[in-house]
């Protein structure tokens, strides 16, 4: 337990089955995320306090042996086919008793965070988050470098009777920071 927490043996097999059921898959996205996400989840678990690590292990064994009560099939979760595992986990995640839902929820959040903050998944969904952050940081650095007192009221320089789009405004600010205020306003 603690920062050296590692999933080994049987718990790792259950965790892999849960991750495999939960990671996103799209026909056009030709990457199997299971092992990478499992490694990310393991890293995340290491940052959790020991009591939560114990709770996670408890949840894994609970899902392994109790999940047959909630869905198709009789085998333990780690020996079930993926579609059966998914069906059982969804039933548990939407169970009317919240304490039963909790068996899945923390794992679901941990796995979703790991999967959906991956650059390849973000890119597939049309996001360029890292690039966006870099452009924003650069823009702000230029804004701060410009003399704030010289910043004209906004959005007056562009408005002139029409609505300014966010993109227009931001490019205006960028041009302004570069010292081309008149050009931007024009």
């Amino acid at each position: 337990m603690g920062p050296e927490f590692v999933l080994r043996g049987y718990p790792r097999r259950i965790a892999r089955a849960v991750v495999d059921a939960m990671v996103p898959r799209w026909p056009e996205f030709d990457v199997d995320l299971t092992d990478d996400v499992l490694a990310d989840v393991e890293r995340t678990l290491r940052g959790y306090p020991p009591i939560i690590q114990v709770a996670i292990l408890g949840s894994l064994f609970g899902l392994e042996f109790l999940s047959p009560l909630f869905g198709p099939g009789l085998k333990p979760l780690s020996r079930s086919e993926r579609h059966i595992a998914i069906a059982r986990l969804e039933t548990i995640a939407n169970h009317p008793i919240p304490q039963i839902r909790m068996l899945v929820m923390l794992l679901k959040v941990t796995i979703s965070f790991a999967a959906y903050s991956r650059p390849d998944v973000e890119a597939f969904l049309g996001y360029r988050r890292r690039e966006w952050r870099e452009t924003r940081q650069a823009l702000r650095a230029r804004l701060l470098a410009a003399d704030p007192a010289k910043l004209p009221a906004v959005p007056a320089p562009l408005a002139d009777g029409r609505v300014v789009t966010p993109a227009e405004f931001l490019s205006f600010l960028a041009a302004l920071a570069d010292g081309h205020a008149e050009q931007a306003a024009g």
Partner: peptide, 25 residues
């Protein structure tokens, strides 16, 4: 909220969540 947080607010997961998240933008 960032994409990862959005994935956590839907009750679905696995393939159904993946389909929902196709429309994230």
């Amino acid at each position: 909220i960032p994409l990862a947080f959005m994935s956590a607010i839907f009750p679905e997961f696995g393939p159904r969540l993946a389909e929902r998240m196709r429309d994230a933008r």
